[in-house]
Structure formats: structure tokens, C-alpha cells
Design a protein around this nucleic acid. Structure first.
Lengths: 132, 132, 132, 132
DNA sequence: GTGGTCTAGACCACT
DNA sequence: GTGGTCTAGACCACC
């Protein structure tokens, strides 16, 4: 059951299922939670778990393959590409966070909110999401 | 040309033009940069400036009207609704920033980035965008 | 009818329809027969012309977009990407021919055929296909 | 180790393993490098050498048997069929090269490359692969 | 068992 | 009109 893949659909989200999956795998590889050579759940298996059509999963996997994150092996489960540098250093991973934060900064500016207030809000949200 | 409306399309962005425009006006009103009674550019004018189909602008304006932010006046330019409370207090405006920061927090968690690192990045991005 | 797109299915071919289309567009752009900014036939139009399902066309177009060859414009026909350098010089185009010729060379070697014989055959095939 | 069979997988190649093997044996027989009566490596041996499932090798051998190129002998290694005319004349072997060159010619035409340029490239590739 | 391709057809969002 | 997403389900090729 629990193979550590740990993906859940955001049914409320605007972005399509296959995109959520692509992003999830990409981040999981970037953070080293899935490593080069690791196999990922089969199309049919994951489709059943998420109760979506297999083609939706397949579409996500194909994009990740085109991107070089996954690699296909005829007749065998797909796996994280060997040549893909996994577990990027934190400094690089941080850059993956940049686009969303830039958007937030633009919104803050338009709302004429101060840096301090924006930072405080982000801090409290970070605490909520990970109360460790 | 410069009527203080100051809207620019993010052509690369994922969200649709009409949505960008709605968000822009909403924030501009919330922050008091446009006040009750202020006129906004006509559909045709703005459509021409942005090189976009007039219906796209019209759609945005209609949504804002339905929301009570703008009001239509036969034969006259639309304007910010009189009964619309403008210049919401900073505390309320801050809540408009929440969704994007929540998304950023979720991404940070998935990337296994620490709170400190995420905050530091956000701080430096805020400085970039408004170095005052 | 004839919009100069000039694509025909190789029904006998082993490679899938969407791949044939991807290759065709890629080559057509590389050779400058389609230029940056040119619109390509709509998904529905081309699907009907070729008597295939629209999703098959869409899949090809999406791949070309991911590759940077085409660009999407919400609600509008897709077109050749602006930043895509079109009409590559003949020297570069020649490199696109390399993989297939390398395969042919490997086969020739394995069949222990001489260079002269292989070249002669290729020459006559080139004459057949373009009897100008 | 080196029994003169000299087969290597193109893992990056699009065509399946069993097909690569079939083609290899066929060409090797056609060119007389393996002759009627010669034994070929056992399924298990070759599977181990290539790190491939034995069934994949078996499938290739079965196809070659059905084609009359190999023959099976109970309890003994398969060998090149006795009645198989080996070392086809060069003129016939040349025809085995045709399909790939036809594909190359089609690509050259689509890329709007001249006959001379295409021939020159093929010539230089033939030199690279066999600089003798 | 694995993934890939394709069709039929619904429904949505955007211009 | 444009493209995008998704489902249902058939059929194929490969390991």
C-alpha cells in the first residue's frame, strides 16, 4: 500500500491532475526523496489508487520522460533517470521556490503591503504547514 | 497614455488575460490606488492598448461589476462603485496575499526546505522588487 | 484546402501518427517552409483532414510546444514560436540527417558492403525520390 | 567471452531488443560472417551477457527459426540452418540496405537538402565508421 | 506484468 | 472559433 510515493490529489486545485503529478514527482526527485534508478508506481496501479484514468497518469509520466526526469524501459516499470542529478543541493532547490515567491512579492507590492508584514505572514503560514 | 491604470500583461503567465485584469483592479482598489467614483479605461481603449480582443476586457469588467467593485453607467465610462469600501485596512489586504503564500509554503515543504531559508529568499525577492 | 501544410500519413510506417506529425513539423520549420509566427492548422481541422482523432493531433502539437517549436496562445490557433530560430542554415539542417545515415552506415558495415556500392545505391534512391 | 558473435545492445535505440538481435544475426549470415552449420550462443548465455530476460533472446531466435535462418536441434545449441544459402551476393545484400537509405532520402527531401550534400555526408560517415 | 497508441465523445476555458 | 482535460475502453508491443 504505502510505497512511499505519497501523492494525493488536490481536488480543489485549478491545475490539472497530470500537472499536479508532474510537479510532485519533479520535487520529490529534486529533494532526493526519490533517487536515480528508483522505480515509480505503474501507470495502472497509480491510476487505480487515485481513481483516475490510466491515460492521465501516462500523460504525466510521458512529460517527465521528455523532460529527462524519468526513463522508460520497454516492458518494465519506469524509473528515475540514471543521468538525472538527484538530490540537488538546497541552494538549487531553493530556486524552484522562486517563481511562486516572486508572484507573491508582486502581489504584495500591488497591495502596498510592507516587507515586514508580508514576511510575518509567510512565517506564520510556514509554521502552520509544518508545526515541527 | 499614462492614465495611472498601469496594467501590463504577463504574456508568459499561465493565468488568462481576463483573470490578470480582474486581480489587478481588485488589488488596486483594495490598496486605495483607485477610489470610489474613479473612472476606469473604456473597454475599447484598454483592448487597443493591450492588443487584446475587446470581449476579453469586457469579461473582466463584467466580473468586477458582478462582484460589486465596478459599476456600469449607461453611456458613461465604468467607475469604481460608490458603495464599495475602498482602501481596506492593511490587515484585510494581507489576507489577499495568503493563497499565494500558502502555495509557496506547500512547495517549500515538498522541497524539504527549512523555514529560515524560505523566509530569507522571500525577503530578498521583496527587496529586489521594491528596493526603496 | 491547400494551406501549404502538406502532411500525409504513412499508413504503412511503424511509427505512430503523432510522431510522424512531430517530425514533419520539425523538419518543415527547420527548412524554413514554415516560419516563426506562422499559424498551423487547427487541431480539429487537421484531424478531419487526416481522419484521425483530434487528440492524436493535439498530442503532437503539445510535444512540439514542450520542445519550443510551437507556441500556444489561449483561444487562438497555435503558431511557430517567435524565439525559434527558423530556416537553419543548410549545414545545420544536414546534421538532422545524420542519425539515419549513421544507422545506414552501421548496416552497410555489418553487411560488409563497400563504400562505393553504398554510395551508389543512396545516389540512385535520391534520384528516384526527387527526379528533378 | 569473445566467440565472434559480437553483438551489442543499443540501449538508446527505439527498436526493441529482440529486433536488434534478429537484424544482427540476419546481416551476419547474409554477409557470410556466420555460415551454415555454425553454432550460435545459447539463450541463457546470451541473456546473461546482455543482462536481458532469456525470453527476449528466445523470441528473437524463434523468429529466425521461423524464417529459416536458424535451426533448432533437441538438446544441442541452435545453429545456422544447413539449407540456408549463406553469403548472399553483394547485389542482394545491398537490397537489405535499401529501407534505411530510403528513409534517409525522404528526410533529406523534407529538409530541402541537395543530393550532393546528402551524398557527401553519407560518404564521410562511411569513412568514420570504417576508416580502413 | 509493463507502457503506448488510438478512438469516441463529453465538458471546460479562453478569445 | 481555438486548445485542454478527462473518461471509457480497445488493441498492441515488449519483457
Amino acid at each position: 500500500m504505502d510505497d512511499g510515493f505519497d501523492f494525493h490529489l488536490h481536488t480543489g486545485s485549478a491545475d490539472p491532475i497530470y500537472r499536479q503529478l508532474v510537479d510532485h514527482v519533479r520535487r520529490r526527485v529534486a529533494s532526493g526523496q526519490i533517487r536515480a534508478g528508483d522505480e515509480i508506481p505503474s501507470v495502472r496501479d497509480l491510476a487505480q489508487r487515485l481513481a483516475v484514468h490510466p491515460m492521465t497518469i501516462s500523460k504525466a509520466y510521458s512529460l517527465l520522460e521528455a523532460e529527462g526526469v524519468l526513463e522508460r524501459r520497454r516492458g518494465l516499470p519506469m524509473r528515475v533517470a540514471a543521468q538525472h542529478r538527484d538530490a540537488q543541493p538546497a541552494a538549487d532547490r531553493l530556486q524552484l521556490l522562486r517563481p511562486t515567491l516572486e508572484r507573491a512579492a508582486a502581489e504584495a507590492r500591488q497591495l502596498q503591503l510592507g516587507k515586514a508584514a508580508a514576511l510575518r505572514l509567510f512565517g506564520s503560514i510556514l509554521d502552520e504547514s509544518d508545526p515541527s
